[in-house]
Structure formats: structure tokens, C-alpha cells
Amino acid sequence: MVHRITAVAWMTFRRLLRSRILMAGAILALLVMGLYSGILIAILAAAEEGDQQEVQALVPMFFHLAVAMFGTVSTIMATIIGVTVLRTDMTSGTIFGVLAKPVSRGEYVAGNWLGGLVAVLILWLVFAVVMGAIASGIGAPLGSLHVAIIASRILMAALSLSAALLLSIRFNAWGAAVLSVLLVNGASVVEQVANIMGALKVDVPEKLVNALAFPFPVTNAFDGLSERLMQSDLAPDSLLPAVAHVVDYALVLLFVAYLFFRRLDLNRSSE
């Protein structure tokens, strides 16, 4: 089973490499890193000899900024990958050649997911290496907290990948992308809307907000994790449950995708 999943994953990854999706992601990543290091270098250049200490103190803030930007990029990437891998295979008809082989639908879905995840991981790996190099260069190397923050973002990307893959089985790429962003960030959206209403002096009962956010437990799980990391809380007994939650949702969504796909009638829809 494992060797078939890895074979599908490897092929999925190679397909992504050839497509423009990863290229676009890499360019966005470079932009983010260019921006980040540009700002750092500018500050360093402007600083007086004696101010080096203060500049180094700024590094964590810039790190958070860069991670947040890159996190958004990687989540978008994961969503695009998720809504395309399986879907293009179905619409182009290449799926028939693959599933005629002794491969189960479950192995096929898992392989697609894994291949997409590897692509996202590689983007993050490049990001981490470059950021690490810059940070060390100015004498403020990244620590385990930074690694944990990056890891949490990768989890988030994995979650988006699952959601997008699941929705792409039923909806076309655009529909699936929009719905998947909503599914993953629904609670944040509700919260933002409530905040705006609050600012406009419209009273929204908290019960209503909670009820509206209820169908999107995924956001809460991730927010919990982010909050811990922001407070530099690396204690395993508070971090692990939060991590488990995010992983849970990623796997549940992936499993639901499998359930949907398991007995799906495969038609050639390009006809």
C-alpha cells in the first residue's frame, strides 16, 4: 500500500513541478523574502554602530511579519494545488489510466494529497533556509519557537489542502477554492464581520456570533495553536492538544474526501 501511495505522490509532485502553480508560488515566496530582507538591510544600514542591539531586537517582529505573509502565500498555494490535482486528472481523463492499475481509490487520494503536501513543504523549506541564513547573518539566529511557528503554518497549509481536495471532487476549481477558503477560515470571517458591526455600533449578541462560527471549528483549532506560539508558549502539554486538533481536522477532511471519492462514478466530463 505504502509504495503505491508514494508512487502516486511522487508523480503528483512531478506534475506540480511542471505546472505553473509551483512556479507562481516560488515567485511569490521570493517576493516576500526580498521584501523582508530589504527592510532588514535598510534598517541595518540606517542604524548607528551602537544601535545594533536594538536592530537585533527588531528581528522577531520581522520574522512574524514574513511568516504571516508567507503563510498566506502557502495557504493559497495549498488551496490551488488541492483544487487542481485530482480535478485535472478527472477532467483530462488521465485518471482512467491510473485507476485501471491495481491501485485503490483511497491510495490514489492519499497519494495526491501527499504529493501536494510535499510541494508545500519544499516551499517552506526554502523559506526557512533563507530566513535562517539572513537571521544568522545579522546575529539573531532562529530558535525552536520559530521552527514551531513555521511548523504550525505548514499544518495550516495541509489543512487547506485537505479541504480543497475534498471540495474539488464535487465543485469546479473556482467554486472549490472559494468554498475551501470559507471552510477553513469561516470562523474568522464571522468574527471580522461581528467586529465591523460592533464598530458600527450594531450590537451582535455573542451567542449569535458563536452559533455562526460553530460550523467552522477548523479556524478555532488553528487560532488556539497560533495564540500559544505568539505567547512563546512552547510547553508540550499546552501545545500538543492544539497541534492534535489541527491535524485531526486535516485528516478528517481528507478522510471525508476519500469517502466521497470511493464510490464516485468517473465520467469523462470533457466530452
Binding site: M11, R15, S92, G93, T94, F96, G97, A100, K101, P102
Partner: peptide, 14 residues
């Protein structure tokens, strides 16, 4: 499907 060879109509490859 282990011992089957299949040629689809208008085979599509990557």
C-alpha cells in the same frame, strides 16, 4: 485489476 491490461478510448497521458 492486478492481471488486467487496459487501453482506454483515446488514452490521455500527462
Amino acid at each position: 485489476r492486478e492481471q488486467v491490461g487496459f487501453l482506454p478510448e483515446n488514452y490521455a497521458f500527462y
